[in-house]
Design a protein around this nucleic acid. Structure first.
Lengths: 138, 138
DNA sequence: ATGATTCTGCAACTCTGTTGCAAATTTAGT
DNA sequence: ACTAAATTTGCAACAGAGTTGCAGAATCAT
């Protein structure tokens, strides 16, 4: 686990620090998509809000995590499955958010179906988010 | 235009006020998906922030407008195309957000493709948002 | 080990969104 | 058209989310 976090940081050209390893560990342990405030609470030892913001930004920029927009206006972040090159994310899977427990999950088995946009539109990223009730809460 | 706003309000059982007609007019005129701050600026005469929030909430609740989540953490709102019953939205179309001009558009011609979730997940709402460059900015 | 670079945490600030309340407006009944 | 009840508005005050600048601490490369 510790090792995994370390190599993720190295592989993406980020310097290895306690905070970054800590935050990555939370992602690795929970396997969930987490909000900013989730992280502030869960990571061992109190984290500075500002540092969390900047760390998440760095991770997104390097393609370590991706952003999941939700209709309740609270962004979630989740580990990228495969190698995401800097800036360009290949996370074309569906995301699920449970109305009951609030947990956000990557449905890795389910890719976002491709759509054909009307003439003139150029597509860069797609996101598909399903809201509903998850297996645990049903 | 004026008439249209008025009948929308009546049809959804909301009392008719200057503010509500004004906000609806902006939606009708622009035909775009607007953020909260778009509205604060655009509506004729200065609007109180709080009133705009409450008006949008009321409209969403009554099915007059729907919410579009974006990955830059700013919700957009857009008129519902058809009759949306209270609370239950039938806006299953794809949304597009331009990275260049920032405008959000409903692609009414394009329905969100249906997906089959893994066993145990119960689906309530789906949203599909495409980020890219729109015809005007290309 | 050391200097250069990067990261962290603090303070202070802005922006976003919410709540309570009194005055103004709208609605419905007569 | 008038009035009472209900709803809406705008203000003030607040809570939370997110940003910026900077000095000290940690990390990296040599």
């Amino acid at each position: 686990m510790e090792e995994q976090a370390l190599s993720i940081l190295r592989d993406h050209g980020l310097s290895v620090t306690t905070v970054r390893k800590g935050i990555l560990d939370v992602f690795l342990k929970t396997g969930q998509a987490l909000s900013h405030s989730d992280l502030e609470g869960q990571a061992s030892g109190q984290l500075d809000r500002v540092t969390v913001y900047r760390t998440l930004q760095a991770f997104v920029g390097k393609g370590i995590i991706h952003v999941i927009p939700t209709s309740d206006n609270s962004l979630r972040y989740a580990l990228c499955r495969d190698a995401c090159v800097d800036g360009h994310h290949h996370d074309r899977h569906v995301h699920f958010i449970c109305h009951h427990c609030g947990k956000a999950t990557c449905i890795n088995q389910l890719d976002v179906p491709s759509v054909r946009l009307p003439r003139g539109y150029r597509m860069q990223e797609v996101s598909m988010v399903v809201h509903g009730v998850c297996p645990n809460c049903d």
